[in-house]
């Protein structure tokens, strides 16, 4: 369906696509094609409110994905962002709801928790040389248990929009004349611009990519590889903290024990957006576009009347197609 037309495009006009940003461009076409397809298939999908909902549910995935792009670029991964997000939100929310802390302080703690776990992940991977998959799988379990432990196993309802302290929900969505305006999207765009700049124009970004491409050569250039390697995970943790706030702001109650699997949406988005699993290649803008592929699938498939099982099957298939496009493209580039 949507993808057929895209792969055709990939075959006919390669240089044009490369000029437009390579895989990013292909994936952008996929996003647009999916949007048109779902809109044509479902009147419910065409509505403004649905677009707002898609955006609402994309913020936390987008934020996680922006963050996890950095460990991925170092040829690592962070699996703890999903359960971490819930953990940070539970702890921040616990202080707000049960200890009467101001919401702003709770948010600060939430982000801080993300940074702390980012440092822990970074130290385990970069300083103690644990494989990233293993280290972050461990912190994934730790965050899951830790969050539930702090709140005693019960859900945390951050203040509702109308309750005192509910102002923080309007960070992501404001009402003007009874219409919801998804301002969160602007924040996401702003953060993508900032992190693109960090990736392409700062030492942090340069060394992140260099570590992913050839860690040893980077070390032998006299770069403080350990520091920058840790920092990639700290950035990831920081964004997991921001994602926790986005999640708390959009959804009513944060349930302990949830969160496992969120990281797959984020990592999947990054990969679809052209971030290489072997590190060194990728972009933040690509990641964002990739995230929208995932989010459109998650939201769009229920709207065209597919039941849960079909949704998962089709999501898996679309991801394979997206990744295959990248592989085929790369093979062609190297002349094979």
């Amino acid at each position: 369906m949507a993808n057929k037309s895209v792969s055709k495009t990939a075959g006919t006009n390669r240089s044009f696509i490369d000029r437009m940003g390579g895989q990013k461009f292909i994936v952008l076409i996929i996003v647009i094609a999916m949007f048109i397809f779902f809109s044509a298939m479902s009147p419910g999908f065409r509505k403004y409110t649905t677009i707002v909902s898609i955006l609402d549910y994309s913020y936390y995935i987008a934020l996680m994905a922006i963050g996890v792009t950095f460990p991925l670029l170092t040829a690592g991964v962070d699996l703890s962002i999903g359960t971490g997000l819930i953990c940070y939100s539970l702890i921040g929310g616990y202080l707000v709801v049960h200890q009467d802390w101001p919401v702003a302080a709770g948010m600060l703690v939430t982000v801080l928790m993300g940074v702390i776990f980012g440092v822990i992940n970074g130290c385990l991977v970069a300083l103690m040389d644990l494989p990233a998959f293993l280290a972050t799988l461990c912190t994934c379990m730790i965050t899951r248990g830790f969050g539930a432990f702090v709140v005693g196993g019960y859900g945390i309802p951050w203040p509702t929009a109308t309750a005192p302290g509910g102002w923080f929900r309007s960070i992501f969505k404001i009402q003007v004349n009874g219409q919801n305006i998804p301002v969160g999207f602007l924040w996401i765009i702003l953060l993508v611009i900032i992190m693109s700049f960090v990736l392409n124009h700062t030492k942090m970004g340069r060394y992140t990519l260099a570590i992913g491409s050839n860690k040893e050569a980077t070390r032998l250039s006299g770069v403080n590889v350990k520091f920058y390697h840790v920092m990639a995970y700290v950035i990831c943790g920081f964004f997991a903290g921001l994602a926790a706030i986005a999640y708390s702001a959009i959804f009513a109650t944060v349930q302990p024990g949830s969160g496992a699997g969120f990281e797959m949406d984020a990592i999947g988005g990054a990969i679809v957006g052209g971030v290489s699993m072997t590190g060194g290649v990728g972009s933040v803008t690509g990641t964002l576009i990739g995230v929208f592929v995932i989010c459109l699938l998650k939201t769009g498939l229920p709207f065209i009347g597919l039941t849960a099982n079909w949704q998962q099957i089709i999501t898996g298939l679309v991801l394979i197609v997206a990744v295959m496009i990248d592989i085929v493209k790369r093979k062609r580039e190297s002349g094979k």
Binding site: S213, N214, A217, G280
Partner: peptide, 9 residues
């Protein structure tokens, strides 16, 4: 290749 250059840069 291993220690001198960062090939993807």
């Amino acid at each position: 290749k291993r220690y001198g250059i960062v090939v993807q840069k």
